[in-house]
Simulated scan of single mutants.
Amino acid sequence: MSDSIAYTQVSSWIHDFKELTKVRLALSVVFSSIAGYLLGIDTFNIGHFVLLALGGYAMVGASNAFNQIIEKNLDAKMKRTKNRPLPSGSMTTNTAFFIATLLTVIGLSFLFIINPITAMFGAISIFLYVSVYTPLKTITPLSVFVGAFPGAIPFMLGWVAATGSFGIEAGALFMIQFFWQFPHFWALGWWLYDDYKEGGFFMLPTGKRDNGTAIQIILYTIWTLIVSIIPALGVTGDLKLSIVAAVLVFISGLIMLFYAIKLFQKRETKYARQLMLASVFYITLIQIIYVSDKYIRIWF
Results as ranks from 00 to 15, higher is better:
residue 174 F to R: 01
residue 208 K to A: 12
residue 52 L to H: 05
residue 194 D to T: 01
residue 13 W to T: 14
residue 43 T to N: 13
residue 300 F to C: 11
residue 109 S to T: 12
residue 217 I to F: 10
residue 70 I to N: 10
residue 43 T to V: 11
residue 21 T to V: 09
residue 297 R to W: 10
residue 241 L to K: 01
residue 139 I to E: 05
residue 181 Q to T: 06
residue 33 S to I: 01
residue 295 Y to T: 06
residue 198 E to T: 05
residue 269 T to V: 13
residue 156 M to D: 01
residue 229 I to G: 02
residue 165 S to Q: 13
residue 65 A to V: 08
residue 240 K to M: 10
residue 187 A to P: 11
residue 257 L to H: 03
residue 160 V to N: 09
residue 254 L to P: 12
residue 188 L to R: 11
residue 68 Q to S: 05
residue 140 T to I: 04
residue 192 L to E: 05
residue 144 V to I: 14
residue 294 K to N: 04
residue 276 M to N: 13
residue 267 R to Q: 15
residue 217 I to T: 15
residue 45 N to C: 11
residue 293 D to G: 14
residue 133 Y to V: 05
residue 288 I to S: 07
residue 216 Q to F: 08
residue 243 I to H: 14
residue 205 P to N: 05
residue 129 Y to M: 05
residue 169 E to F: 05
residue 123 A to N: 04
residue 130 V to T: 11
residue 299 W to E: 06
residue 293 D to T: 15
residue 69 I to F: 04
residue 69 I to D: 10
residue 195 D to R: 06
residue 267 R to G: 12
residue 181 Q to C: 03
residue 279 S to Y: 02
residue 175 M to C: 12
residue 53 A to P: 02
residue 88 S to Y: 03
residue 187 A to M: 09
residue 150 P to D: 03
residue 40 G to N: 02
residue 20 L to R: 06
residue 208 K to R: 13
residue 152 A to G: 01
residue 213 T to F: 00
residue 275 L to F: 07
residue 92 T to L: 01
residue 272 A to L: 09
residue 187 A to S: 15
residue 289 I to M: 11
residue 192 L to S: 01
residue 208 K to Y: 13
residue 239 L to I: 00
residue 41 I to L: 09
residue 81 T to R: 10
residue 214 A to M: 04
residue 251 I to M: 00
residue 87 P to L: 12
residue 26 A to Q: 00
residue 110 F to E: 13
residue 174 F to V: 08
residue 186 W to Y: 08
residue 229 I to F: 08
residue 130 V to C: 10
residue 92 T to D: 08
residue 280 V to P: 07
residue 54 L to H: 00
residue 109 S to F: 09
residue 117 I to A: 00
residue 283 I to M: 14
residue 282 Y to H: 07
residue 93 T to D: 13
residue 13 W to K: 15
residue 234 G to A: 03
residue 213 T to P: 07
residue 148 A to D: 06
residue 49 F to R: 00
residue 185 F to H: 01
residue 13 W to Y: 15
residue 183 P to R: 12
residue 58 A to P: 08
residue 203 M to K: 10
residue 53 A to S: 12
residue 212 G to R: 02
residue 175 M to P: 09
